[in-house]
Nucleic acid binder design. Structure first.
Length: 706
RNA sequence: GCGCGAUUAGCUCAGUUGGUAGAGCAACUCAUUUACACUGAGAAGGUCGGGGGUUCAAGUCCCUCAUCGCGCACCA
């Protein structure tokens, strides 16, 4: 052991200094890029990194997924796979726009008062700045991803490819323009897909309103101006004779003429068994209007205010209008009764504003044929889920597909390359911006101002990042080996990637799907800014080192279930790093100038210890092959500390023979290899001091041979 | 309402195909300068949510109940 190394080992392990130096060493080696790996690395192993949103700091959840994927990548690289872990950054359309809008709000500005071009430019600069920050933080976690292949979801060729897919889907009849009910957020002024809304329990009132000869129950009396019918169950004897008739119902603005229709959807037991039909402002009513060919009357505008069709109520916001309408109904004596009513209403998943169902022309993806492809792939086990119960969730979802609204009324995203006819309202793709008249009616066609739902582009991410369809990377690395993501994306992202993969490339985008749970606070409570229990990973790494944080996130954290991030746990693994450091110092000092080479004849006790270690290494390798990182990490931790350090090293103290020197060096060096995927920094640093001939960087060393 | 998951030591959680209950932290006793106090040795702590069943054997498989969490769908 040379003097200089000896000196370094005599000091305590310093993560701060070591980590940046080691990461630089790795990056400069070029081995993050599979093309630069030695010849033994032939068979590809690929992970596409779920691109973090470039709109803020990395949180504990990011730390977990980077650690998990880095463990997979480092393990497979050592096993001799041509390993590609491809990083990216997501412009995260709606999400980023919201973050930016909050910033504008603080500055007393509003996006609705800005020129769209200026707004786009500002968000672009903001995102690029955040992207650089994000990349720095991913590096700090030790991620061994190939930065030379990094992609951004707004790269020009990404945009081009996404738009081409839109055209292809339109040609194949999988994308259509439809005037349908959409989830409208009146605050954000955009429609949202079904997975972008959440249901929230709300206490409302149920109002019983006399409509001529019958009474209807509703929670939204402010929509009566848009009522066109009353629906009853055809088997309801109370109302059977009224079906087909038209009733007259006086309301504050005049007299409504309402058709009475019979529809099996109506529940006889609820309310009065008679349901008012407002086709423009309720999804069920919209569907019923389609079935019964009823007119649509829009009475609420996109800002959530009543429009000119409501007479004196025009301009009022929904809740204020409700109050006034109720007062007026009462005065007219047609408000029969009210009762408290608890129900769940869909809200915007970002601002919790109640979603206003609105009828709007938008682009939709026809999901059924695509979902069928995904369902088939899952049933044929071309996709393997970890944990496996997620297969059920996935197949349930794919069995009940809802057409997907991909139009967003926000500026921050990939433009939908389409024209809309000002005369007939029809739309058609126009990638080259060449067509200005409607092919159907000859009317003037103008550019669609909308952008794509983020998931429309990120759903194609595995394809696009690998250069589908012609790039060599695509041929080499697709389908990818594993997709690791948070379990919440089982609906939002995973199915879309599967669908686009199967539709465009005729193959699944990944073979394995590993889903991790949420990272909660020490008491298992969800982290949130308002609760003030958010743990910033930077604080933990600067206190205890990145390796310690990585171990703390992995040990005992089973796939698919949430974990509690406890600072004491991280501290414990900081202690483990110290243990590794000092055990190494002891072994290196004891072995003196001995170089680890061919195995000499060992004493029986040493031979036994080697066997125990090799059995464990085999066991851990098996765990790693099956995504049991929580077990693998715990096993090597316990072995190293409580067997190697506490027993083998302790018992070695009186000995100086070659057998013990070899044994100690062997177990130490092989342990460093096994610990490396979990704690890459300290192991790489110690590996550089190991007295071994013909060493490489630990990150490309041969995994323990089984 | 339907579906999924959880319930194991004081706390946070492991326990892969059924085979003598585990870890970290906390708490207890002892050791006191050692490769490491970011330490070591030792002891303590659990009828594995309740009940029933299958089995030579159940924390693990089946049924049922309870509580908590999550997701989906909603009847206005």
């Amino acid at each position: 052991m040379n003097e200089k190394i000896n000196e370094k080992l005599l000091k305590p392990y310093d993560p701060q200094e070591t980590e940046s130096r080691i990461y630089k060493l790795w990056e400069e080696s070029g081995f993050f890029n599979p093309d630069n790996l030695p010849a033994r690395h032939k068979e590809p192993f690929t992970i596409i990194m779920p691109p973090p949103n470039a709109n803020g700091d990395l949180h504990a959840g990011h730390s977990l997924f980077i650690t998990l994927e880095d463990i997979m990548a480092r393990y497979k690289r050592m096993r001799g796979f041509k390993t590609l872990w491809l990083p990216g950054a997501d412009h995260a359309g709606f999400e980023t726009q919201i973050v930016y809008e909050k910033k504008l709000e603080k500055e007393g500005r509003s996006r609705f008062k800005m020129d769209p071009q200026d707004l786009y430019k500002e968000i672009y600069d903001f995102t690029i700045l955040n992207k650089q920050n994000m990349e720095k933080q991913v590096r700090a976690m030790g991620a061994s991803c190939d930065w030379s292949r990094e992609r951004f979801t707004l790269d020009p060729d990404v945009i081009k490819e996404v738009q081409k897919t839109f055209q292809k889907m339109y040609n194949d009849g999988l994308v259509y323009r439809g005037n349908r009910m959409v989830n409208w957020c009146t605050k954000h002024q955009t429609s949202l897909s079904d997975v972008e809304t959440e249901n929230k329990e709300k206490d409302d009132m149920l109002y019983y309103i006399k409509y001529g000869p019958l009474t209807v129950a509703t929670v939204r009396p402010e929509t009566i101006f848009g009522d066109v019918a009353v629906a009853v169950n055809p088997e309801d004897s109370r109302y059977a004779s009224l079906i087909g008739t038209t009733i007259k119902a006086p309301i504050p603005t005049g007299i409504l003429e309402l058709k009475v229709i019979g529809d099996a959807v109506v529940d006889k037991e609820f309310g009065t068994g008679a349901l008012k039909i407002t086709p423009s402002h309720d999804k069920n009513d919209f569907d019923m209007a389609t079935r019964h060919d009823l007119p649509h009357i829009e009475v609420i505008d996109k800002h959530g205010r009543l429009n000119e069709k409501t007479g004196k109520y025009a301009g009022l916001k929904i809740l204020e209008a409700r109050r006034q309408v109720v007062t007026d109904l009462e005065a007219m004596g047609i408000l029969e009764k009210t009762e408290p009513y608890k129900h769940a209403v869909p809200v915007c998943y970002k601002c919790e504003t109640t979603i206003e169902p609105r009828e709007m022309p938008q682009w939709f993806v026809r999901m059924q044929p695509l979902a069928d492809l995904a369902l088939k792939a899952a049933e044929e086990n071309r996709l393997t889920f970890y944990p496996e119960n997620y297969k059920k969730i996935f197949t349930y979802w794919m069995s009940n597909p809802i057409d997907w609204n991909i139009s967003r009324q926000i500026i921050w995203g990939i433009p939908i390359p389409a024209k809309i006819c000002t005369k007939c309202g029809d739309g058609f793709p126009d990638l080259d911006n060449k067509h200005f008249t409607c092919p159907k009616c000859g009317g003037e066609a103008v550019t669609d101002p909308d952008t794509f739902d983020t998931w429309f582009s990120s759903g194609q991410w595995p394809l696009i990042t690998l250069g589908f369809p012609d790039d060599q990377d695509f041929k080499t690395f697709y389908p990818t080996s594993v997709m690791q993501s948070g379990s919440d994306l089982i609906f939002k992202w995973i199915p879309r990637m599967v669908i686009f993969g199967l539709y465009l490339a005729k193959d699944v985008p990944f073979k394995d799907i590993y889903l991790s749970g949420l990272v909660n606070d020490a008491n298992g409570k969800k982290m949130s800014k308002s609760k003030g229990n958010v743990i910033n990973p930077n604080t933990l790494t600067s206190k205890y080192g990145t390796d310690a944080l990585r171990m703390g996130l992995i040990v005992g954290n089973t796939p698919g279930s949430d974990m509690a991030l406890n600072e004491n746990k991280i501290k414990g693994y900081r202690n483990f790093a110290n243990k590794i450091w000092n055990a190494s110092r002891f072994v290196l000092t004891k072995s003196d100038s001995y170089i680890l080479g061919e195995k000499p004849t060992l004493e029986t006790k040493d031979e036994e210890n080697i066997k125990i270690f090799n059995d464990l290494a085999k066991d851990i390798t098996d765990d790693l092959d099956n995504y049991r990182f929580h077990l693998a990490s715990e096993k090597i931790y316990h072995y190293f500390w409580h067997t190697f350090a506490d027993i083998i090293i302790e018992e070695s103290k009186p000995r100086t023979d070659e057998s013990i020197k070899w044994t100690l060096l062997y177990i130490l060096s092989e342990s460093l290899k096994i610990i490396h995927p979990f704690m890459p920094f300290i192991t790489e640093e110690l590996w550089s001091m190991m007295p071994i001939k013909e060493k490489n960087l630990l990150m490309i060393e041969y995994w323990h041979s089984i």
